[in-house]
């Protein structure tokens, strides 16, 4: 069976169904930094796919390879059936892209930004004006269309970038942290627009994010990336189920837990992961009832007061904790990125 050519054709047809099909992608920067260490990833067509990962895990690098900005050091990837290296031109005609950093000219108006891109894509003169106005209107920017982008808020800039990525009705959208720095209302507006756009055009959406709730709410499928490797993919429900067990939430008196104690907690029978928050300890366990006595004994022995114990269903954060061994959310990081964007805006 293995040698029948028909199998190759089958394999090929599976290829064709994937919007993204990456095999063994390795990326080494300047011969030193190994940003991607063998990424295998398939994203179904017309799906919304979220790539979740901590700072420096390689999300942006993978997206830049998939959007044909640079070749991988090893491996190959297909996007909508086109090879990212040899078929780059074919991909660039059908993809919309919003980079992580700000990507609009700030010294012209929002409308003019859209106009320049419309001309770059060769959108015919007759439909340009209508398409641009529709796109700006749909994302709530028509009132500021004729103002200089310099006067926009961070959220308005992000929406303008998304509007310009939607201008050509792309078959696939790549969004690198699309709602970074947006307030909850603006995030909602953006996702409503993206969802309705996806319904109308059957666009595949591939986005990087660190907002777990965003992945939870809007992604059909999630990939977890850590240290340059995709360690798990699946639907949100599948991933949560796969945590397989319980999450114990222990509310503590502030202070006093050091990393040696965390290590010892991890060694407790049935415990699979431990993460420390401001004043709470999350313990993922195969079986909470088995784990609890051991955990309590250790905390008592170290003189740490437990105020309250509760159980909860696994969240995406727990999924992340289980497979990547670290927490995902970190407020300092969000602040960092907001700062970077700010500096770049000032130019």
């Amino acid at each position: 069976m293995k040698h029948l050519p028909i199998l190759d054709a089958c394999a090929l047809s599976i290829f064709m169904q994937s919007a993204v099909d990456a095999r063994g992608i390795v990326k080494v920067y300047e011969g030193k930094v190994r940003a991607l260490a063998g990424v295998d990833l398939q994203v179904g067509s017309e799906n919304v796919f979220a790539l979740l990962g901590p700072n420096g895990s390689g999300k942006t690098t993978l997206m830049r390879i998939l959007t044909t900005q640079m070749p991988p050091t090893e491996g190959r990837a297909l996007v909508m059936g086109h090879d990212t290296v040899r078929g780059g031109a074919g991909i660039r005609r059908i993809v919309g892209y919003v980079p992580q950093e700000m990507s609009v000219w700030t010294d012209i108006t929002g409308y003019e930004n859209m106009l320049i891109y419309a001309k770059i894509y060769g959108i015919p003169c007759e439909s340009r004006r209508r398409l641009i106005n529709e796109a700006l209107d749909g994302i709530g920017l028509s009132e500021v269309a004729d103002k200089l982008v310099r006067s926009y808020s961070g959220g308005m800039i992000r929406r303008l970038e998304i509007a310009s990525a939607l201008l050509i009705s792309p078959k696939i959208l790549f969004l690198d942290e699309p709602t970074i720095g947006l307030d909850p209302m603006a995030r909602k507006v953006v996702w409503e627009k993206l969802s309705s756009f996806k319904r109308e055009f059957g666009t595949t959406v591939f986005f990087n994010t660190h907002y777990m709730d965003e992945a939870d709410l809007y992604a059909d499928e999630i990939g977890i990336i850590s240290r340059g490797r995709i360690i798990r993919t699946g639907t949100v429900a599948e991933l949560k189920r796969s945590v397989g067990g319980d999450v114990l939430l222990l509310e503590l008196e502030p202070g006093g837990i050091g990393s040696p104690l965390l290590e010892r907690l991890r060694a407790v029978e049935s415990v699979k992961g431990v993460a420390l928050g401001e004043s709470e300890l999350r313990v993922i366990a195969d079986d909470a009832e088995t784990a609890l006595p051991g955990v309590m004994r250790l905390l008592d022995g170290s003189g740490i007061l437990v105020r309250k114990v509760s159980m909860s269903a696994p969240t995406l954060d727990d999924v992340f904790l289980k497979y990547a061994g670290t927490r995902l959310e970190s407020n300092s990081r969000i602040a960092d990125i907001a700062k970077v964007r700010q500096t770049i805006r000032r130019g």
Binding site: R64, T67, T68, Q69, A89, R92, R93, V95, Y97, V98, P99, Q100, E101, M102, S103, V104, W105, Y117, I120, Y121, G122, F174, I344, R345, G347
Partner: peptide, 14 residues
């Protein structure tokens, strides 16, 4: 280059 403009231009048919 420091902003995302060049990256975005690279992903257009230009």
């Amino acid at each position: 280059r420091e902003s995302g403009i060049l990256k975005k231009l690279l992903v257009t048919p230009l």
